[in-house]
Write a protein that binds this DNA or RNA. Sequence first.
DNA 1: GTTAAGATCTGCT
DNA 2: GCAGATCTTAACG
Length: 198
Amino acid sequence: MLTFDHKFYKENSLIVARALLGHYLCHETEEGLIAGVIVETEAYLAENDPACHASRGITKRNAVMFGPPGKAYVYFIYGKYFCFNVVTGNEGSGEAVLVRAVEPVFGQDLMSKNRFMDCEVLQLANGPGKLCSAFAINRSFNGHDLTSKPLFIAKNSNEHHRIKIKSTKRIGLSSHCEKKYRFIVSGSQYLSRRETGD
DNA sequence: GTTAAGATCTGCT
DNA sequence: GCAGATCTTAACG
């Protein structure tokens, strides 16, 4: 499995968000490999984006976003869930890509175990909180370099050229969510929301 | 020290 | 389709 180099993550979040679709998110846990194809992402921009955690300057939580690109930004939300992001852009810019859903391809049994509940394969990792739970991603991976094990993103050299990418509005934001900064693999059955006709 | 809101998920109607 | 759970984070005093 080949990972992306740091130069790849240095592009701005809009570019990286699209570029990550169709590639693999992998976690080599002690119990075995967990892997899935990234099918849904959202870009959070350094400039003019009030919804971005970094928009109000550096804090203890978002510090990793201002560090070098290619690292994981993991934060806790709603008292229960984690969200997994990839830091992008130049160091100091404060931007990231939220990975919202993956299509399970390996270690579905482990994902199911990590979710602590019975659910269809279709719903194992079709949302930011679900994905982190299934992949056993927690606070300890905040700041982890995604070009190295045990948690990494690997290139898919086969299918990538076949996917069709669509952009839509971002999910779950109370304000300033009009821009189409959410990117999905069109036709995928593993999205967090059903694909609409817009 | 206190408070309000949050890049969500689940279960119930 | 909608409300509740649940607790960290950040802003404010």
